[in-house]
Amino acid sequence: MKWRLAEHVSFTEADKGGVLLNEARGTYWQVNVTGAQVLRSLLRGNDVPQIIQHLSAAYPDQAAQITGDVHGLIEAARKAGLIQHEP
């Protein structure tokens, strides 16, 4: 399943993560470095299992919670209207 930014949403990376800006509403959503990595990977076409596998290898001491965190981030961003499935 491929994802894209919703219309009127831009994503800017920063040293400590990233910011998604909904230009239509004038609201923003800030993510930490790992959250920015998840969103970047998702928007590049990587699927969720690939993202989870990569993060679990990079952060083995947090592997137990990575799956829930990745799914939680994606669901929260989707519900906030920031990302959506590509048609």
Score class of each variant (00 low, 15 high):
Gln84Ile: 10
Asp47Glu: 13
Asn32Val: 03
Gln53Cys: 13
Ile83Gly: 08
Thr27Ser: 11
Leu5Arg: 00
Gly18Ala: 06
Ala76Gln: 14
Tyr28Gly: 03
Leu20Asp: 04
Ser41Leu: 10
Ala6Glu: 08
Leu39Ile: 15
Thr67Cys: 02
Asp61Asn: 12
Gly45Asn: 05
Leu21Thr: 14
Gln62Val: 02
Val9Gln: 04
Leu82Ile: 03
Leu55Ile: 07
Arg4Ala: 10
Gln37Met: 12
Leu20Ala: 09
Ile74His: 03
Leu20Lys: 08
Asn22Met: 03
Ala14Trp: 05
Thr34Gly: 08
Leu55His: 11
Leu73Thr: 00
Ala6Cys: 13
His85Met: 09
His8Lys: 05
His85Gly: 09
Asp61Cys: 04
Ala36Gln: 01
Arg40Thr: 14
Thr27Ile: 05
Glu75Trp: 03
Ala24Cys: 02
Leu73Phe: 09
Leu43Gly: 02
Lys16Glu: 08
Leu55Gly: 12
Ala24Arg: 11
Pro87Ala: 15
Tyr28Ser: 14
Gly17Ser: 06
Pro60Phe: 09
Thr67Leu: 00
Trp29Gly: 01
Gln62Thr: 08
Leu5Tyr: 03
Arg78Lys: 12
Ala6Thr: 06
Phe11Met: 02
Leu73Met: 11
Gly45Tyr: 07
Leu43Val: 03
Ala6Phe: 02
Pro49Val: 06
Val31Phe: 01
Gly81Asn: 07
His8Phe: 10
Leu42Trp: 05
Ser41Met: 11
Gly26Cys: 05
Ala36Ile: 03
Thr67Val: 09
Asp47Asn: 15
Arg25Leu: 15
Ala24Glu: 11
Asp15Pro: 11
Gly18His: 05
Arg25Gly: 04
His54Ser: 15
Ile66Ser: 04
Arg44Val: 00
Tyr28Cys: 07
Tyr28Asn: 10
Gly81Trp: 05
Phe11Leu: 08
Ser41Asn: 09
Leu20Ile: 00
His85Val: 10
Asp69Ser: 11
Ala64Cys: 03
Gln37Leu: 12
Arg4His: 11
Val48Cys: 07
Ala24Gly: 04
Gly72Lys: 00
Pro49Gly: 06
Ser41Ile: 01
Val31Glu: 07
Gly72Tyr: 03
Gly81Gln: 08
Ile51Gly: 07
Leu73Glu: 07
Ala6Ile: 01
Ser10Tyr: 02
Lys79Ile: 01
Ile51Asn: 06
Asn22Pro: 01
His71Arg: 09
Ala76Thr: 08
Tyr59Pro: 10
Gln65Arg: 15
Gly68Ile: 00
Ser56Asn: 13
Ile52Asp: 06
Ser10Thr: 13
Met1Trp: 10
Gln53Ile: 06
Gln30Phe: 06
Glu7Gly: 02
Val19Cys: 06
Leu73Asn: 02
Glu75Leu: 10
Ala80His: 03
Leu43Ile: 05
Glu86His: 11
Asp47His: 12
Gln65Pro: 00
Gly81Met: 04
Ile74Pro: 00
His85Ser: 12
Lys2Arg: 15
Ala14Ser: 13
